[in-house]
Amino acid sequence: MDPINFVILAAILFAIGSAAVLLRRNAIIAFMGVELMLNAANLSLVSFSRIHGEIDGQVMAFFVMVVAAAEVVVGLAIIIAVFRARQTISLDEPSELKG
């Protein structure tokens, strides 16, 4: 089976992740949607690496994983800080950011 099918799978996963970010109000679930989008991008990188027969795509996917790990740490810390300040993790609640 052609590895391009994995890119199609990655596109579907990316769409599901973006739908979660757009639709869910729970900050942690929306954040998991972001993680799913990052992983979909990783999957497409790895499958293109397989298609072209070169290792660079896998190295880039590795970099994405490291950056995603750092991003998760900071993001969850922000969620905890917001929860401490206002006892909620709903994304619609902190409306002070409005202009």
Binding site: D2, I4, V7, I8, A11, A15, R50, I51
Partner: peptide, 19 residues
């Protein structure tokens, strides 16, 4: 989100790269 998914899938499905 559905439009994005449909767009991506329809574009990728037409690609044929030599493996």
């Amino acid at each position: 989100a559905g439009g994005l998914g449909a767009f991506l899938v329809s574009v990728v499905a037409r690609v044929a790269l030599p493996v």
